[in-house]
Design a protein around this nucleic acid. Structure first.
Lengths: 149, 149
DNA sequence: AATGAAATATACTCCCT
DNA sequence: AGGGAGTATATTTCATT
């Protein structure tokens, strides 16, 4: 499925604010609201739009720290980890990557003792390296048509 | 600001789907829609809710690869990098972290030549290490009340 | 802080082009 | 693929408790 100018205009707005109304988007790009709704529906069905998420502050929900943890899995322990990681509520994002480490994850934690606990849960799977997040410089930047320039 | 049971119930639903209507949330948790709207407004004002984002497929928007790149900045080059990184459209997320590397970023790229180009842009700022993302095991997991258990 | 009601706005469905 | 009309639903505002 191709993404034309109008669909990019829609995607730009929905990435900014997922609660943008179809009517408002339509007004801005010169389309009726059913037309916007139909385009959005098609982009959802095509998998271009994957979902609508609310970002919440980890800090204001009682979590003092965010960390990036890499894992270099022991022989035969990668698969069990991949099964288990979905159950770890601390993990916001987890990627399988190339390189010396197999896994990189973003975790949100109550405090340092919670970090300690969490690292302990990982030791049966592999060697870990922990990096505490000091600040977030860029957060969830939108993908735009000209990203690839 | 405290987050009571009802607010957690709202946050859970909005994290699942940012386009959930207040009326529907209200029906599920036993509140009128103005009550839900008011609670959401307060959580926005308090900074608990930071925004509503649409997730789009980088693959289906013409980007073949995602990578995690770490940067170990040269002396005096961290600050210039922090200014500049916001302009790099390739960067979705960028964190300042503790440890041997100062910076970790998630980047979305057209193809390998685009990766090469991008790494070239970074060489004046520091040493980089690149990890190609093979798959995403956990994506944007919701923060829930019991994450911290 | 929540409700119910009224006014406004939006979304959805259907038909037409 | 989009417009327009009609209906249903949602949001917003406000008075009340």
């Amino acid at each position: 499925m191709q993404i034309d100018e109008l669909n990019w205009a829609i995607l730009t707005r929905l990435q900014q604010n997922a609660r943008y109304s179809f009517a408002e988007i339509g007004r801005e790009i010169g389309l009726s609201s059913p037309a916007v709704a139909e385009r959005v529906k098609k982009m959802e069905d095509a998998g271009i739009i994957k979902g609508y998420k609310t970002q919440i502050s980890y800090h204001k929900t009682g979590h003092q720290l965010k960390a990036i943890i890499t894992l270099r899995a022991f022989m035969g322990r990668l698969k069990p980890f991949l099964e288990k990681v979905k159950e770890f509520k601390e993990v916001s994002n987890c990627y399988r990557i190339t390189g010396n480490e197999n896994i990189i994850m973003e975790v949100v934690l109550r405090d340092q003792s919670h970090l300690e606990e969490f690292i302990d849960k990982l030791i049966t799977y592999g060697e870990t390296k922990t990096h505490i997040v000091l600040s977030q410089v860029v957060e969830f930047a939108a993908i735009d048509k000209n990203r690839a320039k």
